[in-house]
Design a protein around this nucleic acid. Sequence first.
DNA 1: CTACTCTGCCCGTACGTGCGGTCAGTTTTC
DNA 2: GAAAACTGACCGCACGTACGGGCAGAGTAG
Lengths: 229, 229
Amino acid sequence: MAEPVVAPGRPRGGRRDEILATFTRHVAERGYDRANFGDVATELGMSKGTIVHHFGTKDRMLAEVQERYMGRRLEEAHAFLARLPAPEQRLAAFVHAGVRYSTLEPATTVAFQREVVRLTHEPGMETARAQRDAYRDLVVAVLREGQEAGVFVPGDARLRSLQMFGSLHWMWTWFDPQGRLPPEDVAAEFCRTLLRGLGTPDELAAVAADPHGPVATCVAEIVDQRATR
Amino acid sequence: MAEPVVAPGRPRGGRRDEILATFTRHVAERGYDRANFGDVATELGMSKGTIVHHFGTKDRMLAEVQERYMGRRLEEAHAFLARLPAPEQRLAAFVHAGVRYSTLEPATTVAFQREVVRLTHEPGMETARAQRDAYRDLVVAVLREGQEAGVFVPGDARLRSLQMFGSLHWMWTWFDPQGRLPPEDVAAEFCRTLLRGLGTPDELAAVAADPHGPVATCVAEIVDQRATR
DNA sequence: CTACTCTGCCCGTACGTGCGGTCAGTTTTC
DNA sequence: GAAAACTGACCGCACGTACGGGCAGAGTAG
């Protein structure tokens, strides 16, 4: 029934976080359907029952992964939006952040991206879905701001947000965090093409896309800080 | 119950194609892991054994779905590349075609896009993977041509192809073929943003993106013809 | 024409396995 | 000592697929 509620006077999570992390990695590697309690338990040297004890059902475990992920991303987004005023900088920040997450927390990111679809229709995913929608709305708002400010060409903001999210969410199928291709290069190239595509003047776009520019730096500070705390 | 029909004169495949189509739809709706022989058999009013008789294993059935899909896409691609000389037209054609397929054969397209990842590592998928790589190489080649012709700004062609494929392959998560949003609008918006992002002069981009322009028309003819034969 | 055989679909069942989840009980922690 | 953490045995079920056989039509011999 009602889940463990953390525990009183207990160091945050303990074994629980460990389980969630391992489960997340398995989801990232094999997908939700092929990830199973047995393998996770074996890898952590514990019993299947322990996992059930902590999370109840597999569905709930996935829901928690998604909610934590989206929770962090929303916090970050609000943080860099507060620091970056210009629409083209804000949009670039979303791209830099999206790419950075792929290397900083590859497992969580891939797990999320593989299984996003589930939060559209699956029951028990309402919270995560609401978070996802809120995140997307932030991007749409930025796109509209940009159009009103004349820094983006007029067009369908929602469609553009989907075009952008597609590029980022698809990364899990080809991007290798251990590979030769630096994530900053990916972010920079994506930013350049996207901003130019939206009609942003070259000078502004160049600054926003620059891997060592103010936007990328700002995002890096925020994201890295949250990840290591 | 009497739906099989099949008709005299022996249509190619007979029941076999029917099985494959139903299986494809199930994969599109639930994903490969949750699609199963039992449901397909029940829906077609046949036994599970029949499916096994025709395809052997589930893996092989998926492989055949992917191979057929990529086979058709490759044929189409070669067809419109032969008719369209300019790089910006060729690139736009890939976008128009990608979107058009989502409405013309939604099940096959979604099934493919959901399960593309499998053809990277899964054994038995070598053929489909080779086809996929060939298709991607066609796009990369067009991007390079465009740079040499000065119609695209210099940059990483492979990265750009991935950015573009991301937008298209992600469509299955949000695009509804039955919905209000016309696919031509999606294609046009994607083309505009992409081509502008690559630095294509506005006049050329406008023609290539136009849903009633020569590129979209050419693609429509080729794709529709193949689908209905 | 008849009878026989061969062959490609197709059926129904049964089996093995993997997995999510239960439960009763033990150990650990505060 | 109460609550939480953990265990290991167990259940039920869903699913892939192996298997043995049925049936209808085509080819063939008499």
